[in-house]
Amino acid sequence: MTPAARVQSAIDLLDEIIVAARDGGPAADVIARQFFKARRYAGSKDRRAVRDLAWNAIRRWGDRPASGRAAMIGMAAAQPELAAMFDGAGHGPAPIEPGEATASGRTIPGWLLKRFAAPVRRELDALLERAPLDLRVNRLKAARDEALEALAGLGAEAVESAPDALRLPEGSDVLSTAAYREGRVEIQDLGSQLICQASGARPGMTVLDLCAGAGGKTLALAALMENRGRLIAADTDRRRLGQLPERAERAGASIAETLLLDPGKEADALAAMAGTCDVVLVDAPCSGTGTWRRNPETRWRLTPKRLEAVTALQVRLLKVAATMVAPGGRMVYAVCSLLDEEGAMQADRFLEDHTGWKAPGQAGPGRVHGKGTLLDPSHDGCDGFYFACFSPT
């Protein structure tokens, strides 16, 4: 492919991503895989160049552009070498016409700016930087020094803020290593590891991972529990929850069990566990504003209506989770969001609605914010999270 043809391909890929973001379609990574699968003629260098062009545009524009061409024209305004490729030659993009639609604006959607927690508002550009690859050493199968040695060829380094965290450069092919295949390491962001540490999960406990998804935090909890006790991974998403058994087998997490829930009827399925759990982790659905480094196109999906829906869901899930906690137990509420509506305000609301509870606070990495803790790329070198720990009085 010529450089200009790569630009046109990036425009075509962006068109599909924009439509999916508007209509609630597949994630950008899924679209990209399908896009290149249908274009076998594109070599590895072509695919990498096209993807880089598209993702640079996604990171640049906070508000969803009208089209892939508008997004790329907006990029070309500050890149003369890119603008020169709009000449219509070969398979390249047609010349730019006067008055043609052009993407413009901030990297952060304007309607969201004032909703971010005050401590991070001056650091929001860090949310769009490229993220490294974080790993968690699986204590059930390896020690950190052993994993470091096994991954030395990839440039693995220990992250001192979490006892089992390693970091690799972005794009490292850890999936092909023996350490990963044998379950000695798991891909998991540092922030997620810190939240699992804050749960206080220990051997012999009964632990409920209420919004387990594919089970990343479930596996971390199993390691903290040393495979002793009871660990329930519950979720309403059959597809994602169905990935956990295979992952648990590879990790040697023998105590992990799954429980599929019906949306809106979670309390019914969990009734037998009411008041019996030493730890309940509520990794609630959220806006995902803290994960923009990895999923920048989610900015184009988020709307005030969507935000209102997930905050209402968070309130309901916290109410359900509270009924599961045993006397002397702990509930950890976490969201991969840095919006106060999903973080500090939700913690305050929970305590207002549940007078028999307290938030004792959490020592360790991050910044205290309201009743909980903020983690963010600029301050902590991880994805953006808010979490708060609660216990019944």
Rank of each mutant, 00 (worst) to 15 (best):
G366T: 10
R293I: 04
G216V: 09
I73P: 00
A256P: 07
L338I: 14
I18V: 06
E149A: 13
V310S: 08
A253V: 06
V120M: 03
A233T: 06
A152Q: 15
I58M: 03
C382Q: 05
E182F: 07
L133D: 06
I17A: 00
A326S: 12
V30E: 10
R22I: 02
R181P: 00
G74Q: 00
I31N: 00
I17G: 01
G200W: 03
D52H: 07
E100R: 04
A32R: 14
A54T: 02
A251W: 02
S176I: 15
A309M: 12
I73G: 10
D268W: 06
F35K: 00
T311S: 09
E266A: 08
A201P: 08
A359M: 02
L241V: 12
P245M: 11
E16R: 10
L351F: 12
M85P: 03
E123A: 09
M75L: 09
A27M: 10
N138P: 15
R122D: 12
H379S: 14
R106A: 13
G370F: 09
F36D: 08
Q314V: 12
K265A: 13
E123N: 10
M72P: 01
L302I: 15
A284K: 04
P327R: 10
G288L: 04
A152N: 14
Q193G: 04
L166V: 04
Q197L: 14
V19K: 07
A347T: 12
R202V: 14
A347E: 11
H379R: 15
R301M: 03
D189P: 01
R230Q: 15
A212F: 05
T323H: 06
A143P: 05
P93N: 06
S67W: 00
L154E: 07
Q79D: 11
L219V: 03
F36G: 08
P203C: 13
G366F: 04
I73W: 03
L194C: 03
R139Q: 14
L375H: 06
A253W: 00
A267R: 12
T291E: 03
Q197H: 09
M345F: 04
G372P: 04
Y180A: 10
S176T: 15
R33W: 15
A214F: 06
G361A: 13
A222L: 11
G384Q: 00
A269G: 15
S199C: 15
A284C: 06
P65V: 04
A179S: 08
N295A: 11
A66E: 11
L307K: 04
A28N: 00
R139V: 13
D134A: 09
R60K: 14
T373A: 02
I195P: 01
V50L: 08
A152H: 13
A234S: 11
A147M: 06
L166Q: 02
Q34P: 00
L128W: 03
E352N: 08
R238S: 06
R294K: 07
L112K: 06
A334Q: 11
R349N: 09
V7E: 04
A322Q: 14
R239P: 01
R121W: 05
P169W: 11
A10E: 02
G110C: 08
A103N: 03
A284E: 10
K37G: 03
D145M: 10
A70P: 13
L307W: 05
Q314G: 08
V120K: 02
Q34F: 09
R240M: 03
D353T: 11
Q362W: 12
L166D: 01
